[in-house]
């Protein structure tokens, strides 16, 4: 008997939608995935909206408003597998730079005193629900999306990459930023990104998430030997402002 195609829903919460743009950029490979699943819900791509339950729900973005937090919890309850897509969903990312306590002040400065704010805080999905699979990156990498989706369709649990961005950097032939005295979060960051930022000349701010057994304290000590504490804080907070052990200045190691 032919197996029924898994029902897939794709949702975006508040975000830039760059990871969904990456899905569209898969082009022929997106078509190949579409043949193996039934995308029953994708607001960016289609009018069709089917109610849950879903076999796989892919969620991009941050649950910032009360409505989004409720939607996220509902989706969790309706989904067998919940995938966090991209840094906003997996680790908090850029929106998480804004501390919850400072939102009030910024609402007033940006919108004025009359404004009734909707947002509460920009946190990763794990702050509210259990996430089964994380597809990291700001934005996600196309090959990693395909790898993880294919492993799921083969009923495997996709593993995190067991190596650091440093490995990707060596493969790309990049000179080491740290050896050149430039800050880099590559050693504590999960690989799989092909070191695309460092290859382009930008720093690695760790958008692929902490790798297993990352020694954050050791990297912090190293970074403090080449730059100022303020700059180290800025590097750590670019994508990891809400990651445990990252922002407390070396007193705790990552868990």
């Amino acid at each position: 008997m032919k197996k029924k195609k898994p029902k897939v829903a794709i949702y975006d919460l508040t975000d830039c939608e760059g990871c969904e743009v990456k899905l569209v950029s898969l082009r022929e490979r997106l078509l190949a995935i579409e043949r193996r699943v039934d995308i029953v819900n994708w607001r960016l791509g289609q009018e069709r909206v089917a109610p849950g339950p879903y076999d796989i729900t892919i969620i991009e973005g941050s649950p910032i408003t009360e409505h989004e937090i409720e939607l996220l919890k509902t989706l969790r309850a309706q989904s067998k597998i919940l995938i966090a897509l991209g840094a906003c969903a997996t680790i908090g990312g850029i929106p998480a730079i804004m501390p919850a306590a400072e939102r009030k002040n910024w609402y007033k400065r940006i919108y004025g005193a009359q404004y009734k704010p909707r947002g509460i805080d920009a946190l990763p999905l794990v702050a509210y629900v259990t996430v089964d699979v994380a597809i990291h990156g700001c934005p996600v990498d196309e090959d990693e999306v395909v790898r993880i989706v294919e492993e799921l369709l083969a009923e495997k649990k996709p593993d995190a990459r067991g190596y650091a961005v440093c490995f990707d950097c060596k493969r790309a032939g990049n000179p080491c930023r740290l050896l050149a005295g430039k800050p880099c979060l590559g050693p504590i960051t999960q690989g799989g990104c092909k070191a695309i930022c460092v290859s382009g000349g930008s720093p690695c701010y760790g958008c692929f998430g902490l790798r297993d057994d990352a020694n954050v304290a050791a990297l912090r000590t190293l970074l403090l030997s080449i730059t100022t504490p303020d700059e180290v804080r800025r590097y750590f907070s670019m994508f990891h402002a809400r990651t445990k052990g990252m922002m407390d200045d070396g007193k705790a190691s990552a868990t």
């Binding site: 919460l13 508040t14 941050s62 649950p63 910032i64 408003t65 409505h67 989004e68 850029i94 929106p95 730079i97 804004m98 400072e102 939102r103 002040n105 910024w106 609402y107 400065r109 940006i110 919108y111 704010p117 909707r118 947002g119 920009a122």
Partner: peptide, 11 residues
């Protein structure tokens, strides 16, 4: 418009 505020000018 329902999108949550990210407050980029503050970020």
């Amino acid at each position: 418009i329902h999108e949550g505020e990210r407050l980029f000018e503050g970020i």
